[in-house]
Structures are given as C-alpha cells and as structure tokens.
Nucleic acid binder design. Structure first.
Lengths: 356, 356
DNA sequence: CTGAAAGCGCTAACAC
DNA sequence: GTGTTAGCGCTTTCAG
C-alpha cells in the first residue's frame, strides 16, 4: 500500500488552515478569532458560535511556533532525571505527566546520567526550546548549571534531591526518617550488627539516608563497626560490590539496609552467589519499594517512597510557579512508609534458640 | 538566598540576543549571519570569522520558534510507547535518545498506556507540535490514528510492534524465532508438558511469540494440552493470574514460557506463594532479559531482546526517512538470544530417578 | 558573495 | 465589541 509518497511537498501548505482562513470563513477578523480561542475579552455569542463552527469544519489548530514566537512562552516543560531506566524515576515521571497533561503541557524528558556536564548541556537545550519550566533531579547539590537556570528566571523545581546554595521550590522525601524507621525495625528484630550500603555523599538523598541509619544506631546506643558502611554508585553493580565487601568483613553484619532500589538488586545477587539464606543468614531492607519486591523469594522488606505523588507535587509546584513567579519559595517533604515482608522478618534468630 | 525574584519581567527581552544583534556586532547583514550559521552558500572566510566571534561573545542561540515558523520544520521527534514503567521500553528509549541527540534532535516521550484513544490524543498533540517525525509502538496492529499520521505525511517508524494495513518503516524483534528457541531449550531438557503465558493477540509481538511456542511443540510432534496457553495483559498482575490458572490445571505444566518481562514477575510471585521450587517443580523461561534476572533465586533463563539496538535502529530509520521521504519502506528484524540460567536448568528431573 | 526586504502565523495594542 | 496593524526572530528569494 504505497499510500504515503505524494502529498508531502505540495499539499501541506495549502492544507493546514491558518487563523486567517478561519476568520474569513466565520466572517470576522483574525483578532476576534484569536480572542475567542483564548477566551479573552468579550465577544458576542453569535460571533463566538460562527468562529467555533469555522474552527470545527476546518479542523483548525493554532500554529504553536507562531504563538510561541509572539508570546515568548511555550507550553512545554523539561524534566531532567538522572536515570530513565530506574523505576523510581519512571514512576515519578508518570506523576508529572498526569498533572502536566491535564494542564495542556507537553513534556520533554532528559537523562543526565548523573553527569554534571550532561546536565549542563541538557539545560542549555531546554533553554533553546524556551521551555516554560523545568523539573530536575540535580546531579549535585551545588550544581552550577541549575543555579544559572534559576538566576536566569526559568521556573524550576527540584525533585527527590535538593540544592544547597540555591533557593528554589523543591519536593523531596523524608529520607532520614525513612532510614531511621527501617533500621529501628531491624533493631527491634534483635539485630545488633547492621550494615548499610549507601550512595555517594554528593547526592543529598544518600547523605540523608545514611544520617537516618546513624541516628537510629545512636538512639540504640550502638556504634557502627568499621566497614559497616559501604558505598555504591546507586547502580546494581555498586550494590553488588558493596555487599561483597560487607560479607568479607571479619564480622559481617546480620542485617543490611540498602540505599536504593538498584543497589538492592546487586546486593541480592551477591548474597545468592554465596548461598546465604535471607533472612536467616542476613536480613535485607531496601530503600524504595519496587514491583519486583513481591516476586523475590523471600519478598523484600522496603522503605516505600511516594514516587507518583512526588511527581504530581513537583508538577503542581511548577505550574504554580509559572503562574506566579513572585510566590514564596516552598519546600515539600513527603513521608515514606516501611513495608515489612519476609526478607527482614521470617525465621531470623539473632540468638540461637538455646533457652527454649 | 533570594536570588531569583527580580530580573524576570525586565531583563530577559533585552538579554537574549537575536540574529540582528549578532549582525550588528559582526558588521554584516542578518542574511549573512543566517547563512554562516546554516553553513549554506559561500561567505568570505573573514566575515565568517567575524560572525563566529560575535556569536561567541553574545552567547547567541537561534530562536527555535522563529526558525520553525519560517521553515515549517522542527527538530523534535515524538516517541509513543505503551508503558514508560516497563524497562524494555526505557532501554529502547535510551537507544533512540542516543542517536537523536547526536543529530541535534529533541525528544518528546509519551505514554499510550495501551489505550487506542490515548494514542490518538497523543498523536494529535505531536502533530500540533509539528514534530519532525514519530517513533511509535502502536497499541493495535490496525491503529487508525497511526494510519492517519502516516497518510498525513509525517515520517514515522514503528518499533517492537508492526502495523497490519499500513506500509511504513519498522523495527521489530524475531519474536517467533525467540520463542521457538526457548521452547526447544525446554524440550531438550526433557519437558513434555510446557505451558505458555501469552499477551493479548492484538499485539503482534504476543501473537508471534505464541506462534513460536506452537511451532516448537509441533516440530516435536507434541500438542499443547487444553489450558496450556493462558493470557495476560502484559502486566504483572496478568502474569500472576495466568500462572495460577496454569497451576490449577488437573495436570499442570512442568515448564512455562512467559510472554514478557512484567508477566514473569507476576508468574514468579504465584509460584512462590504456592511454595513451589524452581526449576524442580516448575521451570521458567521469561521473554526479555531484565536487570533483576540475575538477582532472582534461581537466576532467570530469558530470551534477551536487543532493546537498545532496537531504539538505535528505529531512530536511524526515522532520520533517514525525514531526510528522504521517497526512500523505499524498510522492515528490520533483530534477532534474540537465549540466556540460559538456573531457572530452567538446575536439578530438574523430568522422570523421577527410578532407574539409577 | 552580500544585503534588503518580504513574510511564516499569531497576539496585543490601538483605534473605531 | 470589533477590526487594523505592527511586529516576534528567522530564512530566503531577489537584486546588485
């Protein structure tokens, strides 16, 4: 069916209706059409009807480029995340989409890959597209590129991570509290020797989760033994190496809190490879609940983050900022929820059952 | 640090340099600047240098809206997939991004959620944005909206799934062959009673994989017993129900091929809930290899799809189509690869060890 | 090889 | 209320 190879060079120009044609057909001026479509000013009901009819029959859609050129604003927002492959972010993006779509915005999604340089390039691109606003999970808490963008006057909100030097709207998760709760759970189960696989300290989320871990130990009057905190790059392979390091310790932990979802995957792999049993030999709690958590054997205990709501909130914040640039800066923190499954509970015995 | 609340209404207009200012600074006409930037025609080296310098110092970037308005083409392509949460698609998107970014294109990512109506709305939006082209995984093989888009003259390539009535560039995977190989693997292991969890028949991929399954059985002179093929919606929950149905059969299968990655997750959950052992009680092969495959216990045997390459290829095809609309339509098929892990091999004994 | 000038389609003053 | 008109910033004939 060779149905595509003609009309390309000829028809489109004559085919796509312009505001002028709508005006002619409706017997009004282009200004009136513009007003009716924008819902601005007042137009006699009768003319409104004529315009609507013309728009309908011509299947007219305003030319975005022309509108943008004239108004200097677009209906596009840029979203910059660090890893589109991470389900955490894809869920966040769904939330963003949901809100933005309802408001008539289009979304450009970009991957920074955790690289500050890429981040800079992407923001430059978004600026070139004259996006109406940006939602970003910054690679660094002191990202210069993001700072510039804000100074530049572009409406912007950070998500998941926060900025240290720049005053800008943000939505984040109660990371410290989430980690605290998770470690407490482990403590209550009787664990005394709890390890942590943390992300890089530059990421505010990693730092906060580690803080929560430390605070929980402190509250229990415990000290993290040497080597009990290992670092990974927030990727699967990082979790794998970190868990191996933990297990190679003279006295390995009996329980581990893993700093994010992907590293949990790597940690599990390391555990399985050594033939260790979860939670008998080692209990595991992951940060961020994922769809695969219930498919694991045993199912994974996890600190669930309100990912979708994170996205929704960020988008709402951005929309409000776009609408009112003078509005005071706001920081919103959403709480996490510990979902207890068998990877932490199960038949763990911190002390061998000798008394019973 | 209240560093954002001023310059917003005043400076931007005067701040962002236009081609006119570049021209003035370089002491040439705007036409010359335009030519130099586009690399068209010939300009004296000396003037070229002056223009470049002016562009540099002014940090000039052409206004996209103005350019689009004038040339009637954008540097944006739309990508419509059915589920941004599915790692399969995110990996594909990475491949697309990679190529498009190199070519100076921006990417608008959209979710159809498998809903034909949403698909239609999204394509309308993309049309309104006058995208240069579209890469899409159609919800239906006979999607009317996609068909219209093609007729409309928009460069378009389908990915993963194909269209039945429309002649258009496509990139897909050798699904039939992949499923065939997987089932053969199970057959060689001694399984006689192999089940399949398939996706909906409307999706070309689901259909093809089921065909591969059937062909493999046929080649082995076996018939699929009644109920051996269960259907799911390509989501986790679908796999869960389908696997339960399979296990409720009077004579349940000893091995199962699952039609996609998410359904595999659901299937595993069902198996774990019943306390069955993999692969002793039931062997599993998933379609599409995922990052979590190696974190499962036992690791999952899977038909690996060249997801990234799928994206790369689709993007290349689209670019070529944009560049040359008359080019003959091409269909590219990429092969799969069976990755054998312990979920299918391991200590399975099709016949109880009674003779040894 | 270079510059002047005519718009692309739309919005927003500004008149009527 | 409604129409006229002047550009937004850019590309691209068309002269020179």
């Amino acid at each position: 069916m060779p149905n595509r190879k003609r009309e390309i060079p000829t028809t489109p120009a004559s085919k796509v209706p312009t505001i002028k044609q709508v005006a002619e057909r409706a017997g009004v001026s282009v200004a009136t059409v513009s007003r009716v479509l924008a819902g601005k000013g007042f137009t006699s009901p009768e003319r409104v009807e004529r315009v609507r009819a013309a728009v309908q029959t011509l299947d007219y859609r305003p030319n975005r480029a022309a509108r943008n050129l004239r108004t200097r604003v677009t209906q596009v927002v840029g979203v910059v995340i660090s890893d589109i492959q991470n389900p955490f972010f894809t869920s966040v993006v769904r939330g963003i989409e949901k809100v933005l779509e309802g408001a008539g915005y289009t979304l450009i999604l970009c991957n920074s890959d955790e690289e500050p340089h890429r981040e800079q390039v992407l923001l430059a691109t978004l600026r070139a597209e004259s996006v109406a606003g940006v939602i970003i999970s910054p690679t660094r808490a002191d990202s210069e590129a993001v700072h510039q963008m804000v100074l530049n006057g572009t409406p912007l909100v950070t998500i998941d991570r926060t900025l240290s030097m720049t005053s800008v709207d943000s939505v984040a998760v109660a990371n410290t509290q989430g980690a605290f709760t998770a470690v407490n759970h482990l403590l209550e189960l009787g664990h005394k020797c709890i390890g942590m696989i943390s992300g890089p300290d530059q990421a505010s989320t990693a730092k906060e989760r580690k803080d929560g871990y430390l605070q929980a130990l402190q509250a229990a009057l415990l000290q993290p033994c040497t080597g009990m905190i290992q670092y990974g790059n927030f990727r699967q392979e990082g979790g794998y190496h970190a868990m191996n390091a933990l297990l190679d310790l003279p006295q390995p932990p009996t329980a581990v809190l893993v700093g994010n979802n992907l590293m949990t995957l790597g940690a599990l792999q390391a555990i399985h490879e050594r033939g260790l049993a979860i939670p008998q030999d080692i209990a595991i709690v992951g940060f961020d609940d994922m769809s695969w958590a219930t498919s694991l054997q045993p199912p994974l205990t996890a600190v669930a983050q309100p990912t979708y709501e994170l996205g929704v909130t960020a988008a709402e914040l951005l929309l409000e900022r776009i609408h009112d640039p003078q509005r005071p800066v706001r920081h919103i923190i959403l709480e996490t929820r510990l979902i207890v499954r068998a990877s932490s509970t199960g038949q763990f015995n911190p002390v061998p059952p000798q008394k019973g």
